[in-house]
Design a protein around this nucleic acid. Structure first.
Length: 858
RNA sequence: GCCGGUGUGGCGGAAUGGUAGACGCAGCGGAUUCAAAAUCCGCCGCCGCAAGGCAUGCCGGUUCGAGUCCGGCCACCGGUACCA
């Protein structure tokens, strides 16, 4: 009897798979193809358990598809542009490029020992000029088709560092380095015209049958189709050029409750007033303070300034409304102006109360009930649009009607009276892709004084990032790089300037899955390959990407279809989507007595006894915070390679799949990993015993083992195909126990062990190969045909029915599977527990659900 | 704030509207051993001597029957358009 030596065996099989080229994807015209993809990683430098879980899930699918005769594409690459590389360069010197590529090397080296069935020959990083050059070609094609354009948009501006900040670099409204109050500042930037495809992106969600409903719902809400009224308020004594203020509202039925008009500090009218009035200018400067996020705008303090201007109410010539400048109105949204109806909008109500503007209800609950109107201090009354309400100030439609009907009536009225137009709008805004940063894909255009914005010639691609840059001062090094920035105009040849903004990294990740089909092609894609491999049959990644990454990718494939790079069938690139949870780990912490700050302890420093934690050094008891997202700063990151070294890759893989349903978070525990390793060693022993066994067993035992085996094949196959990995593993645990205790003969046990190895192979491929060979399996278990559950072993002839009395289980009977209902009823009534409950009487009701349950109501 | 999700023993979790707690961890008891490790067997939601009762975040509803469906709360997690 030998011990299972993971380190040696895992390395052996990884080499053998490599040499046989098992995972090199090849178009096999006679086979069905299967493209499985996990979201590619950002090369932070270390893999973490989240990666292990994500890639192991994909690997289970990929290996199962390999065993069911598919041509499998399972590639890997790097989402390699982005801010952390520049941050590292600023913090520690060095170059983002060196930092990134050395991280990639480290991570690849950490990933390989896990034995994932990846086709490494297709690997690329988005910061490879070969990749981003093709991305630039795509950009130029999109520019030509009118899918890209320039307009102004606001950014977070750090007035001390004189640089643009990302949202995550703004902490409580202040720049993370300078601590200065952030301002909103407008810049001219590039945009993808994604909003033009809003309708298609929304409607096509219906066809995504294998996407989680919650993701489709989130996307639908994000795209946000609304029907509303577009109208203008006429300005009384207007400044020149501002005779009308355009607004859009989804609640035209509340027009009779309007109390003010608010415009953005960046509205052209506000700009004009600002220029001639120091007080307005001061307010606008104040109003532009703070970050640009929706959250900051919604939760921040609402500030307003009365311009002194008034507008006419469109329904009542004698009614004037004041025009305010308000900090929560953004120029990027809609028209940059709104009308406020405080009675039916919490934000408007807050604003109205602060500045003592009138509050006028337009409707109230339809039926008498406790209702404190907002006029009398109650909250804004915002019932669902489907609810019927009573209109106090109706101008169209019935007095009592639903909000939705009232909106329709209001739009019809406004259209017939020339007040406004009913329009369908989308919340989705165009995708701003400009970033004022170095480490991204250069936007391949040149700005020429004579010719304007000129696309770079395709033969000059890639526009490479210059290497000679420094990060010792804030801002974009491309901006101050004379030889790179100053180039002749591609059109007229006169001196011109390159665009120094680079692309949002979401662009990089919006088509990498298409590039994997032909990663070395000298065009963005290759027709034969893209036609064969697309779509991604199964995409796997974090729920945090539910909206942006997935929506942008859907858009990008539409754009690439319209520019001739992918077939129409790839406009929806991901046939099936699965979103997995995070890997968490307990945090061990104490609070320092001196300053009250929290001190975090590494798991290695902690000893666990009876659910309590103590420091190994000194024995002091410390606090346990369970299930926190793994984070370097909290010292609760588990290093996968340490786990692999200690327990083996198979044990790590087995554990991350076993303990939690894949869509939920999984808590990493050392004990769990140990248990996984123990179980695998047990499987090994059982297989070895089976290999060495001799003699015959009883027919009953042989048959019992076969029944258990085929039920396991059925359940595990179902689990693997439906992301029920934890359930599949529970089933494998149970079957291992059955096999261990089985008195079946040598042949049956060998058969069972061989199939067990196959069923485990997607999760524990190395152990499975070893067992497979020990039991004289042919070739690799990895490519051996997946076992099929045979019907003859699955049939049951009797069934146990629980008996409930008034819904509580009291007893059970075992009956032939096809016993008639009335026969069961008769048997049930004879049961002692039932007799006792009836106490001589007869049941009020007797419910028999065949094959399921019996309920006696007394 | 808004959108989406989650909540079940000491812990991770299982359960097409049909026996709540499968499977695993921890714990407890036993076998084996000179001893230990490893392994194997058994017990293990809470209260109760028991009969029995109570239990799926909280409150209410639908149903013969609710962890599961509906309504209202609470807590936590993800997203919120420049983190990836």
């Amino acid at each position: 009897m030998s011990r299972y030596d993971a380190a040696t065996i895992e390395a052996k099989w990884q080499t053998a798979w490599d040499e046989a080229g098992l995972f090199r994807a090849a178009r096999g015209e006679s086979k069905p193809k299967y493209y499985v993809l996990e979201m590619f990683p950002y090369p932070s430098g270390r893999i973490h358990m989240g990666h292990v879980r994500n890639y192991t899930m994909g690997d289970v699918i990929a290996r199962h598809k390999l065993a069911t005769g598919h041509a499998v594409l399972h590639p890997m690459g790097w989402d390699a542009f982005g801010m952390p590389a520049e941050n590292a360069a600023m913090a520690n010197g060095g170059h983002p490029k060196d930092w990134t590529y050395s991280n990639i090397d480290q991570m690849r080296a950490q990933m390989k020992p896990l034995g994932w069935s990846l086709d490494w020959s297709r690997e690329f990083a988005t910061c490879d000029p070969e990749y981003y050059g093709q991305q630039q070609a795509l950009f130029l094609d999109m520019l030509e088709k009118g899918l890209v354009y320039r307009k102004n948009a606001v950014v977070n501006w750090d007035p001390v560092d004189m640089t643009v900040l990302a949202n995550e670099q703004v902490e409580n409204g202040r720049g993370w380095r300078s601590g200065a109050e952030v301002e909103r500042r407008e810049l001219t930037q590039w945009f993808f015209r994604i909003s033009a495809m809003a309708e298609d992106l929304l409607e096509s969600l219906d066809g995504l049958d294998d996407w989680p409903a919650k993701v489709k719902l989130m996307q639908a809400n994000w795209i946000g189709r609304s029907r509303g009224l577009e109208m203008a308020f006429e300005v009384i004594d207007p400044p020149a050029g501002h005779e009308r203020i355009e607004v859009y509202t989804t609640r035209p039925d509340t027009l009779m409750g309007a109390s003010f008009v608010a415009i953005s500090p960046d509205h052209p009218l506000a700009r004009q007033l600002e220029a001639g009035n120091a007080e307005v200018a001061a307010f606008c400067a104040e109003a532009r303070r703070g970050g640009t996020t929706e959250e900051a705008l919604e939760t921040g303090e609402k500030l307003g300034f009365d311009t002194g201007l008034t507008v006419k109410h469109p329904l009542d010539a004698g009614w004037d409304l004041p025009v305010w400048i308000a900090n929560f109105v953004l120029m990027d949204y809609g028209t940059g102006a709104i009308f406020g109806c405080p009675a039916h909008d919490p934000r408007d109500l807050e604003f109205a109360r602060k500045y003592e503007l009138p509050v006028t209800s337009t409707f109230a609950p339809a039926h008498a009930e406790e209702h404190q109107p907002p006029e009398e201090g109650g909250p804004a009354y915002v019932p669902p649009k489907t609810e019927e309400v009573r209109y106090l100030r109706a101008y169209a439609g019935a007095e009592a009607q639903t909000g939705a009907d009232a909106i329709d009536a209001a739009i019809a009225y406004c259209e017939s009276h020339g007040i406004g137009t009913g329009v369908t709008r989308f919340r989705l805004r165009d995708w701003g892709l400009s970033r004022q940063r170095y480490w991204g894909c250069p936007i391949p255009v040149v700005h020429c004084e004579a010719c304007g914005t000129v696309p770079e010639k395709k033969e000059n691609l890639p526009v490479r990032l210059p290497d000679d840059v420094s990060f010792d001062v804030p801002g974009n090094p491309l901006d101050r790089h004379p030889t790179w920035r100053d180039v002749p105009c591609p059109a007229c040849g006169k001196p011109a300037k390159r665009e120094t903004d680079t692309m949002d990294t979401f662009v990089d990740s919006s088509w990498y899955f298409a590039r994997f089909t032909a990663p070395r092609a000298t065009t963005p894609t290759e027709a034969e390959d893209i036609d064969y491999w697309m779509n991604v049959d199964q995409y796997i990644g974090g729920i945090e990407h539910a909206i942006l990454h997935l929506l942008y990718s859907r858009y990008f494939m539409r754009a690439m279809n319209e520019t001739g790079h992918v077939p129409a069938s790839a406009r929806e690139p991901f046939d099936a989507l699965f979103t997995q949870g995070m890997v968490t780990h307990a945090i061990y912490q104490t609070r320092r007595t001196q300053d009250g700050r929290i001190q975090y302890h590494y798991p290695e420093e902690v000893e666990l006894r009876e659910g309590r934690a103590f420091l190994k050094d000194g024995g002091q008891e410390i606090e346990i915070v369970p299930s926190a997202k793994m984070s370097k700063s909290k010292n609760n990151v588990v290093d996968p390679n340490a786990i692999v070294q200690q327990f083996g890759a198979d044990a790590a893989r087995w554990f991350v799949l076993s303990d939690s349903p894949p869509e939920r978070d999984v808590e990493w525990t050392a004990a769990g990993a140990e248990a996984a390793a123990r179980h695998l060693a047990r499987v090994w022993r059982i297989a070895e015993e089976a290999a060495e066994a001799t003699g015959e067993g009883s027919k009953d035992e042989d048959e019992a083992l076969m029944r258990a085996l085929h039920r396991t094949i059925r359940d595990v196959t179902l689990g693997v195909e439906s992301f029920g990995f934890n359930a599949a593993i529970a089933r494998l645990y149970a079957f291992t126990g059955q096999l261990q205790k089985s008195g079946a003969g040598a042949e049956a046990r060998r058969e069972a062990a061989r199939v067990l190895a196959q069923l485990m192979a997607p999760m524990t491929p190395h152990l499975s190969e070893e067992i497979w060979h020990m039991l004289d399996g042919k070739g690799f278990v990895t490519t051996a045909a997946w076992p099929v559950a045979q019907e003859e072993w699955l049939v049951e002839d009797s069934v146990t029915l629980p008996i409930q009395i008034n819904g509580k289980r009291k007893s059970e009977i075992t009956v032939p599977k096809d016993m008639a209902k009335d026969a069961i009823e008769a048997l049930v009534l004879e049961e002692p527990a039932v007799q006792k409950a009836l106490d001589g009487g007869s049941p009020k009701k007797l419910i028999v659900v065949p094959g399921r349950i019996v309920n006696v109501v007394v």
